[in-house]
Amino acid sequence: MDMKAASSPFSSSSSQCSYSYEEYKETADWLLAHTDKRPKVAIICGSGLGGLADLLEDRTAFPYNEIPRFPISTVAGHSGQLVFGRLQGCECVCMQGRFHFYEGYNINTVTFPVRVFFLLGVKTLIVTNAAGGLNAAYDVGDIMLLKDHINMPGFAGQNPLCGHNDVRFGVRFPCMSDAYDRELRVLAKRTAEEQGCSHFLQEGVYCMLAGPTYETIAECRVLQTLGADAVGMSTVPEVVVARHCGLRVLGLSLITNKVVTDYESEDKANHEEVLRTTEDRAEDLQRLVGALVNKL
């Protein structure tokens, strides 16, 4: 069996409909054979937030194109490597760059790393992303603690758990009402107070759209009516698979822009603005995550 990683989003290994348990395990075994780290916490870094991995000590990094079956991140702000190391004494693995629908990947490829993490022995997944603020009370630079999500692609049948269910990963019908661990959210709030971050920490509902277009004004108004506080193009598929595997999940969205809801407005969402905001707030987010991992 060819163990080469995919060289493009559209090569056969990354565009297949699903992976077998044995394929996930072969990737996990390859990683275990190439590092002595045994992480209990995995961190997925969103756009411009890859600096979280730079906090790791005693680091070992693997470019995605060297890891069997791993896809390749093609988005600016995503470095594209898996980093093992210690954060505040806790062994972690960090994804500097994630995968998205809009890159041409199917949902099984987008979520491939999460089941690999499970087989590595990871117990807790921390997901970060850059998001647009739908809640009028949010300011650019706020960090939103995810308490729930709205899975728009899931409404259209794009759920990573569709198809055959392998009970070695999880049950056929997993609960999602507890997708974001309540105890971890309480711990994050307490940690934010200790780190002096509580004045820009929010808590709300994240809505995922497939992208790559930013939302129209009408779409933003619909999402606000549905109760979404922030909107982005990632995170939810990884969370669904993580909960299916029994991992505890903590989600953090950095509000990089306020969505446009006024037809008279001249403002326009753009990726450069997203990266500028993450650069400005990245240090605070890194400090918060580092202190939080220390408590885990």
Rank of each mutant, 00 (worst) to 15 (best):
A28M: 07
L247R: 00
R172N: 11
G132D: 11
G204Q: 05
N108C: 13
G170S: 03
C17M: 14
Y64Q: 07
Y21S: 13
E91L: 03
S8N: 10
L288M: 12
A33M: 08
K295D: 04
T27S: 11
G141C: 08
P160L: 04
Y138F: 13
A210D: 03
E23M: 09
P39A: 05
E283I: 11
Q224H: 00
N129V: 00
N270P: 06
R59D: 01
E279G: 13
Q16K: 15
L184Q: 00
N108R: 15
E215R: 07
T213S: 15
G133S: 04
C197D: 06
K268Y: 11
I44G: 02
L296I: 15
D139T: 11
T111Y: 10
D29G: 04
Q195F: 00
R59E: 12
A131H: 05
L119M: 15
I126Q: 01
K37M: 11
V114T: 15
C245M: 07
Y19W: 06
E23L: 02
E22K: 12
P9K: 01
D181I: 00
P160K: 04
E66L: 12
A230H: 03
S265H: 09
S13R: 11
K189L: 11
C90A: 12
S79T: 12
L247K: 01
G211I: 09
L87C: 10
S253L: 08
M95C: 14
G196S: 06
E183G: 06
S234R: 08
I44Q: 00
T109G: 04
R115Y: 12
E273N: 09
K189Y: 02
K40E: 08
Q202E: 13
D2S: 13
G85E: 05
N257C: 03
R69A: 07
L288Y: 01
S15P: 02
C220D: 06
R243V: 07
T256Y: 04
S15R: 14
V239Y: 03
E23G: 11
N129T: 00
E264I: 00
T109N: 04
E215L: 08
